[in-house]
Design a protein around this nucleic acid. Sequence first.
DNA 1: CACTTATTACTAATTACTTAGTATTAAACC
DNA 2: GGTTTAATACTAAGTAATTAGTAATAAGTG
Lengths: 125, 125
Amino acid sequence: MKKSLTPLGETEMEVLHHVWSLGEASVAEVREKILENRKVAYTTVMTVMKNLADKKYLKYRKEGLSYIYSAAIQPEDVRYNLVDRLIDKVFHGSPKDLVQALVQNEKLTDEERKEIKNMIDNMED
Amino acid sequence: MKKSLTPLGETEMEVLHHVWSLGEASVAEVREKILENRKVAYTTVMTVMKNLADKKYLKYRKEGLSYIYSAAIQPEDVRYNLVDRLIDKVFHGSPKDLVQALVQNEKLTDEERKEIKNMIDNMED
DNA sequence: CACTTATTACTAATTACTTAGTATTAAACC
DNA sequence: GGTTTAATACTAAGTAATTAGTAATAAGTG
């Protein structure tokens, strides 16, 4: 009965990210990518990928003796879902409040602030 | 070794929200607010509030035989933290991508989109 | 003063995510 | 064909969050 604010854990997100950017990937390939940042056991990555497949975030096909994984869900879908959830649970239904929290955050660089402004300006009404 | 995308769970966030809006609150008062939406045991709310106090999100003072809780951390701080985390873990450091995911989300009403646009337009460069 | 009531403290069960070890299976090599 | 190698399957332990029951404590009430 865990109720997380998010549908996925951090490692799951990390793995998903690598699969997205690789297109198709074996456990070993994903592990290599993760190893660029931190150490992790092969079996750990395998377990996470199996779990993600169980949850339908990944699909796979057998090639020789190993499985080749690919994404079953697109990044946009996961991101939308996550942002929706956050707006609901943390910002009580106000997307504006989220943006406010974002742009008021002093960690944003001027560059980033400008990018965001440009993006919105170019958005059609 | 749990690694959540967020520092708080859903119920914890819910309780925190009520304490913020009430200013000061007893367990019973927070529980009443939650009961407006769903059923929950008195002891459950108590446990969550005790945990939040342990994590320094709430502070309390004794009044008679009960504790009166108040927020030790402001909503903005929690929200900033959460948004930062999300940008880091899900949007790989790009706040722009978050905004993009947000405004492209078809669940947003035109009204909300407009509000966001106005807010950003009024932002200083 | 005994009894009801309100409150907190303690305990525990459940679920989810993370992490990784051990076992098994199957291919590949000598 | 037996042995090494690489992969997956199975198992399990740890931590966090949720949920709530039971025990203990203390205050007020007749």
